[in-house]
């Protein structure tokens, strides 16, 4: 395919601008890689400028985001195997608790399987949540951990929506409220119970 070739409609197997912008912002970017859910943006449908060596050109790994904390490896296998055999699956974990924190890396045997996964599975539901997929240059040790202050993903720090599958409110907001609850413990015992609730 010519580098300047442009389809008549947008392609769903293009990586998000995450890596592109990350490389450009490298010097001042001190955030982790797993927080892309918070800051990815697609460039306007301009033809992608091909870097001389594109780390994603043969990528067979996908970052998968917006999982529920309760989604199991077996569920991920069941869905993602529909695009090809999975070579390796790495669940994203809370840095402190070592519990799933809502993302994972799926590695296929071929680049094509990964592209197909972007096209056919990204944006569909797993465990009744719309999941997000993005091409990834490959898993490295350490990347399985969330980089948020509290151990999970950054996006789960300041979320102000209540997401039951991802531990309720954003954690920073949550702990703020928890302190408040502590102060009014007698008056407002129930709220705390709510936050502790699973599923």
């Amino acid at each position: 395919m010519r580098p300047d070739f442009r389809n008549t409609v947008e392609r769903l197997d293009r990586p998000s601008a995450y890596y592109q912008s990350r490389n450009k912002n490298r010097r001042r970017n001190d955030r982790g890689r797993d927080d892309r859910d918070g800051d990815a943006e697609m460039k306007e449908d301009k033809p992608e400028e091909q870097a001389p060596e594109d780390p994603l050109a043969h990528a067979a790994t996908l970052y998968v985001g917006n999982l529920s904390f309760y989604t199991t490896e077996e569920q991920v296998y069941e869905l993602f195997s529909k695009c090809g055999e999975i070579k390796r699956l790495i669940m994203g974990l809370d840095r402190f608790n070592k519990t799933p924190c809502g993302f994972c890396f799926v590695e296929y045997y071929t680049h094509q399987d990964a592209l197909d996964c972007m096209k056919y599975i990204g944006g569909t539901k797993l465990d009744e949540r719309v999941i997000r997929t993005d091409l990834d240059p490959g898993f490295e040790e350490g990347r399985q951990y969330g980089r948020g202050k509290s151990g999970g993903q950054v996006r789960d720090e300041y979320r102000d929506d209540f997401d039951e599958g991802r531990g309720g409110l954003g954690r920073a907001i949550q702990s703020e409220r928890m302190r408040e609850v502590d102060r009014h413990r007698d008056r407002d015992q129930q709220m705390e119970d709510d936050y502790g609730r699973l599923r």
Partner: peptide, 10 residues
């Protein structure tokens, strides 16, 4: 165009 799900707003 047909909106892509990767088209997230910052």
């Amino acid at each position: 165009g047909g909106g892509g799900y990767n088209n997230r707003k910052r």
